[in-house]
Design a protein around this nucleic acid. Sequence first.
RNA 1: GGAGCGGUGGCUGAGUGGUCGAAAGCACCGGUUUGCUAAAUCGGCGUACGGGUCAAACUGUACCGCAGGUUCGAAUCCUGUCCGCUCCGCCA
Length: 424
Amino acid sequence: MLDRKYIVQNAPSIMENCARRGVSCDVTKIVTLESQRLEKLRLAEDLNRQANETSKQIPKAADNETRQKLVELGRSLREQKETAQREHDELDQSITEIQIEIPNLTHPDVPEGGEADAKELYFGKTPKPKFEFAPLDHVALGERHDLFDFEAGARVSGAGFYFLKNEAVRLDLALQQFAISLLSDRGFTPVTTPDMALTHILRGIGFNPRGPETQIYSIEDTELNLVGTAEITLGGMLAGQTIEAEKLPLKLCGLSHCFRTEAGAAGRASKGLYRVHQFTKVEMFAFTTPEQSDAMHETMRELECEIFDALEVPYRVIDTASGDLGGPAYRKFDLEAWMPGRGTGGEWGEVTSTSNCTDYQSRRLNVRYKQTGQKGTEFVHTLNGTAVATGRAMIAILENHQMEDGTINVPKVLQPWVGKSTIG
RNA sequence: GGAGCGGUGGCUGAGUGGUCGAAAGCACCGGUUUGCUAAAUCGGCGUACGGGUCAAACUGUACCGCAGGUUCGAAUCCUGUCCGCUCCGCCA
């Protein structure tokens, strides 16, 4: 959420930014409402001050008559104040409604447009495989090697759930181990996180769990929701806290299950593991100063590349276009892996993404930092990035590493944990 | 799930409906002094938003989990809610 004062001062450029993202927000209305609101606020404060003064005189009033008069005056002042306050609150509410829809600012280098306008930045070290045979998709490969059970998943939990079996389980765990080990070596503190979080935390991160188009599962009669990503819990870890500037950047990597309703995704290409209601993910998260966040974003992007280079998976990195950025993101890089089994002849499929959310989340969660020796606090910047989402990574690994004889090579870095070099 | 207790400043922890923005201690910052990784002593020490100033000084409002209510006046009373703790039950 953008600062209100900032909105008022920079309304034209914010409108421009909204237009760039294809979001319509009545920013000018905020400017008008805000000045009315401040007027009401001053009025209410003034009336309140008078009421305070009046009530302070009452204990000193000796005789009953002056006392009674003061009480009357106080009552009247309070009533006037309450009216002004109510009017203020209504204005405040209207402003917040608009304000909450305003997306974060956008990095100047972000390409303009929608999904198709994303800018291809570069490719990974591993070239696309050249098959001398018709490659199978991961679902077929899974059947062949008894790796998944989608039917049982549907029977037990409904469509979109699955069981992993045999080497798929080893691969799933291996990917987690690999990512956590690598990130620990790079100064990220590993944490396992709750898979549920309170509604206000989700809101702070920029989700609206109880809204009409939510992707979030909520537990009825409680404030709990199943998390869609550890970004929620990792960001929430420091909600309301003030961090000493020397401790920044604070780098975490969290392991969690992720739950998504995928509402509205019915009918979209969703075969197999690609679009599911539950998966496992190792997530990077960082709290930084404003000066550090761009560099940290680069770092996260590089780490994602390093991981997928190590997994020997071909990929490309794209700079997501303005219209395709989520509300909280200032800039977002997606890493898309080559998936030979998707579509006809293979397609790119998103496997990780990293966003710089600047102070959008920290304002809502109230995470600040303080420079020692200096007065006051500032909002931190937050960044998140997928290290590995095991399901989608597995798709890429299985489909790219399949051999003509139907066997599948296990990437070297995972072999210690998988316990073999070949599946089948 | 049942019962009870509790949420106060960076932390610990007082607080009778009226000068409480809130005692005290710790921590922290500054001064003094004795002089050896420290002790003693004095002073300062919340946050947000607004006014004020070159900048300060100064000043207004709000904030004692959150939201309502009662009252001239609420940290203090009432209701709801969220969170936490303890005990019991259940359980990996």
